[in-house]
């Protein structure tokens, strides 16, 4: 597996997805939405900056997810369906290299899209910092808060896992099923916390055990979601976040390994 080839495949994915109007328009939409929060926040009785931050982070979350799921699905599943994969795989590229290249390319796309949206968010926050500066003795986090990059970085980690899942599912199912599986995977990852507490509210030890097992087996995106804490300037637990990131990254590696194992022997009819 040559890193140079991985890089070349990734670069082609990046080039193509930057030109594809769908992710581009989603990013544009996000920018507009973030900018529109200036007007929305007028109605919020002094909670303007909080709302801008909430809305901005939530929008990035949603758009990031959509790009990861839909573009991630297009990467392999659609390429198999449209048979554009035939020509690539006849080149001196192993299937694992090809998969890894696709994955890296999409991560690159996601990173640049998130960066573009973050710039939009910081511009709006910068406007607020000038228009309605915080009082000197405020205990609230600053408007242009560098800590906002943390939930964004953790969102990227979440998307690493989701994209790996999209890639894994697309090695054995068509585009539509891959979208469904990936969305279900993401939802399951967000129900992690509820699964853990499920045992406390049901009597059946079997149900509680299954819920707990699922809680451990599925990735837990809850641990990667610190939007609320950061927006409120609350304390963060570095050790827990580090553990959650490590778990997510290894999870992504596991999914990629499984994807490669399946894909190496798959018949591309």
């Amino acid at each position: 597996m040559s890193p140079v080839t991985v890089g070349r495949v990734a670069a082609a994915v990046y080039k193509e997805s930057v030109r594809d109007r769908v992710p581009l328009s989603m990013v544009f939409f996000a920018g507009v939405l973030i900018a529109a929060s200036i007007f929305l926040s007028q109605l919020s009785a002094g909670q303007d900056v909080k709302i801008v931050k909430d809305l901005g982070l939530a929008t990035m979350n949603l758009i990031g997810l959509l790009i990861s799921v839909f573009v991630g699905t297009g990467l392999v599943a659609k390429e198999i369906e449209r048979r554009s994969i035939y020509a690539v795989l006849s080149k001196p590229v192993t299937r694992s290299t090809y998969l890894l290249g696709k994955y890296c390319g999409l991560l690159l796309t996601l990173a640049s899209n998130l960066a573009a949206m973050a710039v939009a968010l910081y511009l709006v926050l910068g406007y607020f910092a000038i228009a309605t500066p915080l009082p000197a003795n405020s205990t609230r986090p600053p408007h242009v808060d560098p800590w906002l990059l943390l939930p964004l970085a953790l969102l990227f980690v979440q998307l690493m896992v989701t994209t790996a899942a999209a890639l894994f599912f697309s090695t054995f199912s068509g585009p539509l099923l891959t979208v469904l599986f990936t969305l279900a995977f993401w939802v399951a990852g967000h129900f992690g916390g509820d699964l853990r507490d499920y045992g406390r509210v049901v009597d059946s030890p079997i149900a509680a055990g299954v819920a707990r097992a699922l809680y451990y087996l599925l990735p837990n995106f809850g641990g990667l979601d610190v939007k609320n804490e950061v927006v409120h300037g609350a304390a963060l637990d570095a050790a827990a976040i580090t553990a959650a990131v490590a778990a997510a990254v290894t999870y992504a590696v596991a999914l990629l390994g499984a994807a490669a194992a399946v894909f190496e022997r798959r018949d591309l009819k």
Binding site: S96, T250, Y251, V253, A254, L255, L256, G257, A258, A260, A261, E264
Partner: peptide
């Protein structure tokens, strides 16, 4: 690939 998948999943 299988080995990577299993080890990473367990981790």
């Amino acid at each position: 690939a299988r080995l990577i998948a299993c080890v990473a999943f367990a981790t």
